[in-house]
């Protein structure tokens, strides 16, 4: 070894000496062109890995069993009734008598209309799949649920919709105006959908991209404006949930002077 041969010397002779030559070349002074090149050579691949490769590895993309168009179903002409948009939603996504929320409706709700597998209402391929494979077979549709919650979490829809006066879109966005279902991207480690995706430390909100599903195109829609009565008078807020993570819930509770609902046991079980 080079170093061994120098071991007996009293003092090293500085950087030009061959001893530690390799080590020397790895410690470059700053602000030199070579130094910057080294920085970039590390930074660029790291960013590509972090922003492109890692998300691709972490998330698996899955298609829903078949496409579902909310636009078609919220059309008042087809018999789904409701004065307001809210009531239209709640025609299928309703509350049970004990106040619990039905979530994604089961087959019994669908078959209120689609009761005859031989009789499609439209001409789409998706409806055909639905009728032939599920209605005729009497099987539930295995929807991939974007809003699946961890088992330790409790959420009361009725408290927010009926008591809190929120509209569906204020949290779920313009889901009711979507024609296609977004690709379901599942975190391979946690098993949760990417749609439940919070903000980073800087508070930068990672929205679902509007192009992805034709959703959220009406950002400034009036339905996102909410006026509440406070001690200081009326206050209007522009609210739109992007992720439905714990911090978003807490932020909204704080804005709306409902801090008591940030207590742990309100959402955890």
């Amino acid at each position: 070894m080079e170093n061994q041969s120098n071991a007996s010397e009293k003092r090293p002779q500085g950087g030009s000496n061959e001893s530690g030559g390799l080590l020397n070349s790895t410690f470059l002074p700053p602000f030199s062109l070579k130094g910057w090149l080294f920085v970039l050579a590390g930074l660029v691949p790291a960013l590509i890995v972090g922003w492109v490769v890692f998300p691709m590895v972490l998330y698996s993309s899955q298609q829903q069993p078949f496409n579902f168009s909310h636009v078609v179903h919220t059309n008042p002409d087809i018999g789904i009734e409701g004065e307001t948009e809210q009531e239209l939603c709640m025609y299928c996504h309703y509350f049970r008598e004990d106040g619990t929320f039905v979530g994604i409706p089961g087959m019994d709700t669908c078959t209120m209309c689609h009761d005859d597998p031989e009789f499609p209402y439209g001409q789409t391929e998706d409806e055909k799949i639905f009728l032939e494979q599920y209605v005729a077979e009497g099987k539930e549709v295995p929807w991939l649920v974007y809003s699946d919650q961890p088992e330790c979490v409790y959420f009361s829809h009725i408290a927010h919709v009926k008591m809190g006066g929120l509209t569906c879109g204020q949290c779920h966005g313009d889901h009711g105006r979507s024609e296609t279902l977004p690709v379901y991207k599942e975190n391979r480690l946690t098993g949760y959908s990417i749609d439940i995706w919070g903000r980073n430390i800087a508070g930068y909100s990672k929205n679902i991209k509007p192009a992805e599903a034709g959703m959220y195109e009406t950002e400034d829609d009036e339905q996102y404006l909410r006026t509440i009565e406070t001690e200081q008078g009326e206050e209007t807020y522009h609210i739109k949930m992007s992720s439905m993570k714990m911090d978003d819930c807490a932020e909204c509770h704080t804005i709306h002077h409902q801090e008591q609902n940030n207590a742990c046991f309100v959402c955890h079980k």
């Binding site: 170093n3 120098n6 090293p12 500085g14 530690g20 020397n24 410690f27």
Partner: peptide
């Protein structure tokens, strides 16, 4: 350390 010290940067 005697050998590490020979690298002027580290020293």
């Amino acid at each position: 350390n005697r050998q590490i010290e020979k690298v002027p940067h580290l020293r």
